[in-house]
Design a protein around this nucleic acid. Structure first.
Length: 291
DNA sequence: CTGGATGCCTGGGAGC
DNA sequence: TGCTCCCAGGCATCCA
């Protein structure tokens, strides 16, 4: 999504913006360090200025850290976009329409007549309005190294530093340890590295940690090249679906034969998330460490 | 402090 | 065909 938006946005001035639902936006004054979504009853009135919505600013190349996207401006405010499970940022050229009833929660008009819209049917995503680049850095400081971009030894070190009894899958999903791995790519990376999702992170030897880190890298880079996994809603900024779902070897394949050994893949729940693994290629905790 | 459980939303598909 | 139930790419928060 970031890649597709970059050529559309760089150098464009935001002419106007509309926040159709203010409860999807978080502004600095909001509670819990400013990054907690006000849920439930009537969201208390919040002040969302035109400036906070980037009006009048010149856009730079959008940035990404893990699963977060940031719309940034030259020397001005920034907006972090969380996609949740069904969110997207869609660019539409001058005169191109956005399908009606498409859960559009925010719209930006750019100086070439194009529009940018934030859509999110399920509203697990949202916008974090930040005053400047420093606030963006502060927000991203809580994230671990990016699983796709960071030096591979940083990723491995982050994993080995955890040293807990938590299952490795839960650790991979923890964005403060490594940023960018969600439920699909956690399962895919563990399959690639031959590590059972319930093995404890602290119980992995250095070699296994290294295999997991490298598998995370590979899986994420391949998925990015394939424009992401489109299970239903996801598209890039141009509305184009991804093809990474064709690369999935375990996710969504419970009961089907393992592509490597033919054993029936097991579907279970780890860290409250649907999890699929191969009982042979990913031997269980306590079992012999097989490659 | 840590980690497990819960809640937030809508829509699609399975099953009856 | 139509209804109900279950499940889904994530994450903040509440509790033990």
């Amino acid at each position: 999504m970031r890649r597709s938006l970059e050529p559309r946005l760089v150098g464009r001035t935001v002419v106007s913006a509309t926040l159709h639902r203010r409860d999807i936006a978080v502004v600095p004054g909001d509670p819990a360090g400013g990054f907690s979504r006000q849920r439930g009853r009537t969201p208390r009135p919040k002040r969302v200025t035109r400036q906070a919505m980037l009006v009048g600013a010149v856009l730079g190349a959008p940035e990404r850290r893990g699963k977060q996207l940031a719309l940034v401006t030259e020397g001005g405010p920034a907006i972090v976009v969380h996609l949740g499970m069904t969110g997207r940022v869609l660019w539409r050229g001058k005169g191109e329409r956005v399908s009606p009833g498409a859960h559009v929660h925010a719209t930006w008009r750019l100086d070439d007549g194009s529009r940018l819209v934030f859509q999110d049917p399920r509203r697990f995503g949202g916008l974090w309005l930040l005053p400047d680049a420093e606030a963006l850095r502060a927000r991203w400081a809580v994230l671990g190294p990016d699983g796709a971009d960071a030096p591979i030894e940083d990723v491995a070190n982050a994993l080995s530093r955890v040293g807990t009894a938590r299952p490795i899958k839960a650790v991979l999903l923890d964005q403060t340890v490594i940023a960018g791995v969600g439920n699909i790519y956690a399962d895919e990376a563990l399959f690639r590295s031959g590590v059972h999702p319930e093995r404890t992170a602290g119980g992995l030897d250095a070699e296994a940690v290294d295999r997991v880190a490298r598998a995370v890298r590979t899986v994420l880079l391949e998925a990015i090249e394939a424009r992401g996994s489109t299970l239903r809603d996801y598209t890039d900024g141009d509305g184009l679906p991804g093809t990474a779902q064709t690369l999935h070897r375990v996710y969504g394949r419970a009961g089907e034969p393992c592509v490597r050994c033919g054993a029936a893949l097991i579907g279970t729940v780890v860290a409250q998330r649907a999890t699929v693994f191969c009982p042979v290629c990913q031997p269980p905790p306590g079992g012999s460490a097989v490659r």
